[in-house]
Design a protein around this nucleic acid. Structure first.
Lengths: 192, 192
DNA sequence: TCCTGCTATGCAACTCGTTGCATAGACAAG
DNA sequence: CTTGTCTATGCAACGAGTTGCATAGCAGGA
């Protein structure tokens, strides 16, 4: 149920509507959590119902009203409690790794393009992260002494950057392996 | 729906019962996918029903019968089809990162022990991966020329090893940041 | 002897996350 | 003038994953 907590953190950093939250989840929060607007709206509704959030309807000219949420005291308390509970280290779900091992029962070479596509997606993500780092933390327009919240945002972003660099390097390793298997004996692993 | 595919890959590598699969998912498959026995039994039942798997009841002395599953031809075909479809690069769910950013609204120093605990869990996982690599791929008891399937298993394992090493290093960075924030101004970020 | 743990399977209820669809006004491009 | 895009919200149905519980025989230690 960490989506609730991710929302609380984001609303404490800055109040906003469901729509704005959804866009944050495509950007900075997206370094470590993803969610669609449907999930966000549903959870926001429940959290409001449970008294964790305060709502304020903001009329806007030229566009629909928006409901601006902010963390209420019980929400702050719920977050604080969760922060003090131990959590389990993450379990992984890595589709591409399933494919790589599955390639032994198909044609390893046919996976090369797919792996290259993923590597490109990770390169793009890395570029976005690095641009964000420059803009918010290390560039000339960044606030000079960062406060604690910004320091913590920065260290999380450094984690995203390290993750992408590691993945790109590993996919080089995967590609080299696939090329190597493609050369010596054409369909070597298929024992149907 | 990649659990189905992970099961197909595992059963192609070696047929086995639901129970055996559950244990594999705690070990080698666990490098890139996790599943509990309940999930596995439910999906095995559905896949058998769909004709993707063949079953053989194996009587055993001194313990309950087991149902040994193996991939049937339609299962192989379903896997092959999935291997040729593009998939989206993974989206992440990183609870600890939520906590780290949330620490700005609580006490950053109180997170240190939790982060250390996670780091130790990753060190343990890395040690298991390295032991498995030595046993199956690089040690004196490993098969001399690896076949394609083993090469692919090895490159996936190398990905797990790289992941753990990267995470351990990043958590050093996180710990240094938390210590730094703990020193100068005690509860610097809390603006309640 | 009792308790724990291992093999081995499974149901029921629940929460979480995804996908498809619907509404509705404003604005810009063709 | 129509189509598409952006803001902004939401429902319904489904699939995936979790948690708790149940059964049942055997082995080993306190």
């Amino acid at each position: 149920m960490a989506l609730e907590h991710a929302i609380l953190v984001s609303l404490l950093e800055k109040p906003g509507s469901g729509y704005e939250l959804a866009r944050r989840f495509e950007r900075s929060i997206g370094y470590f959590w993803t969610a669609t607007h449907q999930q966000i709206y549903r959870v926001l509704g429940r959290m409001e119902n449970d008294g964790l959030l305060a709502v304020r309807t903001v009329p806007q000219q030229g566009r629909p009203d928006k409901k601006e949420y902010s963390a209420a005291d019980p929400g702050r308390a719920a977050l604080a409690q969760w922060l003090h509970e131990p959590i389990e280290p993450e379990s992984l779900r890595h589709d591409l790794a399933v494919k790589i091992r599955g390639a032994a029962f198909d044609d390893p070479a046919s996976l090369i393009r797919e792996v290259e596509r993923h590597q490109q997606a990770h390169r793009d993500r890395l570029a976005r992260y690095l641009a964000g780092e420059l803009r918010d933390f290390t560039g000339p327009d960044a606030p000079a002494p960062l406060d604690a919240g910004q320091e913590l945002q920065h260290v999380v972003l450094r984690g995203g950057i390290a993750q992408e660099r590691m993945t790109i390097a590993w996919l080089d390793d995967v590609l080299a392996t696939l090329h190597r298997l493609g050369r010596p004996a054409p369909p070597a692993a298929d024992r149907a």
